[in-house]
């Protein structure tokens, strides 16, 4: 049951990552991989809200949205590969900035949205 929910979430999360990445990448000229950066942070925000509000979310819905949708929306493999490509291309500062900004912003957004999710769950019940 939970596995099925994970599959359903990933069926939506993975193509949405591709579409969002393409949409972002087509709208800026920098070599900085804003697309993957953005979807990873958006996924952190979603998973943070869900983690904070975990007590108010039924388990199948949690599996759909957490390890399914949010986890498949985010990616470590593309993040690491894009960082490698930046470094190989000579853009070492961009590579370092991508790695550090992604980790720090991901952690910060995770903390903020978890607190927000806890407050929401508390207010709702």
């Amino acid at each position: 049951m939970n596995w099925l929910m994970v599959v359903l979430g990933a069926l939506a999360g993975a193509p949405l990552r591709y579409l969002a990445d393409r949409a972002v990448q087509s709208r800026h000229e920098s070599v900085f991989p804003w697309g993957t950066f953005g979807v990873n942070l958006a996924a952190c925000a979603g998973l943070g809200l869900l983690t904070g509000a975990a007590t108010a979310v039924p388990q199948p819905l949690g599996a759909l949205l957490g390890p399914g949708f949010c986890a498949a929306l985010s990616t470590y493999s593309t993040f690491s590969y894009e960082t490698l490509r930046l470094a190989e291309s000579g853009a070492r500062r961009y590579a370092a900035a991508n790695a550090l900004l992604s980790v720090l912003a991901g952690l910060g957004i995770a903390a903020l949205t978890t607190a927000l999710g806890q407050a929401l769950a508390g207010a709702l019940g």
């Binding site: 993975a14 996924a43 949010c70 985010s74 470590y76 493999s77 991901g106 995770a110």
Partner: peptide, 13 residues
Amino acid sequence: ILGGYTTFSTYAL
């Protein structure tokens, strides 16, 4: 496959 397998959000959370 690899994008769905790896996860940045779980890492941060």
